[in-house]
């Protein structure tokens, strides 16, 4: 006895999540290019493409609700359904963060395309993209070890983000530059949040595999790395 239809529905829901992850990865890549080149049309394209991310989010949400209502999943199936539901939301939020960055680009601030801040943002963006890829690969492979790498990667992203403040100080006396420089701080913040969502997806992978939910890092006590399950 194998629940063929149920298995197919579960697999479709997970595939949608993975596809959504790939799409958001592309969105991040596009918006980083737009940011680096001050390419307003490309940024507008990123905003438009977010509708597709939202469509996948809603379709996955509906599929999961139907699975819960019609199939009453339990045990590892229930954990998968729950992990997809949570991760779906995280990936959708990551898409929204790309839109936030794109909106900054469309405001056409006169920031120089080569500056220490832009260099740092570019590195943050690359690391955020790697984190999303790692999170989705770990989820698909049920690979707890890889998922547990995410907090370390996130720590690097957080350090880069904190460095942005030092960069900002260089523009403190320059009123014209200060406005876009402060906005670039916000962009860094969006990328830093992007990384947090990747860590959250890693936690969902841990739950999916082990049945135990634990936070990899405690937001209230970031100095502590939580151990054990």
């Amino acid at each position: 006895m194998v629940r063929i239809n149920f298995e197919e529905e579960l697999m479709t829901a997970e595939n949608s999540l993975i596809a959504q992850g790939s799409l958001v990865h592309q969105q991040l890549s596009r918006v980083l290019n737009a940011l680096g080149e001050r390419d307003v049309p490309e940024a507008i394209g990123v905003i438009a493409a977010d509708d597709r991310v939202d469509d996948i989010y809603l379709a996955t949400q509906t599929r999961i609700l139907n699975l819960l209502a019609l199939q009453a999943p339990v045990a590892k199936d229930l954990r998968l359904v729950s992990a997809i539901l949570h991760s779906n939301m995280h990936v959708e939020r990551m898409g929204d963060l790309c839109v936030n960055i794109a909106k900054f680009v469309t405001n056409d601030h006169p920031y120089p395309t080569s500056s220490p801040m832009l260099g740092r943002l570019h590195e943050m963006g690359e690391r955020a993209a790697e984190m999303l890829q790692t999170a989705m690969q770990a989820f698909a492979a049920r690979d707890v070890e890889t998922a547990e790498e995410l907090p370390d990667r996130d720590a690097v992203l957080n350090r880069l983000n904190r460095g942005m403040l030092d960069d900002l100080k260089g523009y403190a006396g320059d009123e014209e530059s200060f406005e876009w420089a402060v906005n670039l701080i916000l962009v860094a913040r969006y990328l830093e949040r992007f990384g947090d969502h990747a860590v959250d997806i890693g936690e969902q992978t841990y739950f999916l595999v082990t049945g135990v939910f634990r936070e990899f890092t405690d937001a209230s006590h970031p100095e502590l790395r939580l151990q054990g399950g």
């Binding site: 149920f6 999943p73 339990v74 045990a75 954990r79 082990t210």
Partner: peptide, 20 residues
């Protein structure tokens, strides 16, 4: 515990409908 994270594969297979 049994219905969210059973410890035995046989339990898992039975309650998820993959028995036999």
């Amino acid at each position: 515990q049994i219905f969210t994270a059973p410890n035995d594969r046989r339990t898992e297979d039975y309650i998820t409908g993959r028995f036999g």
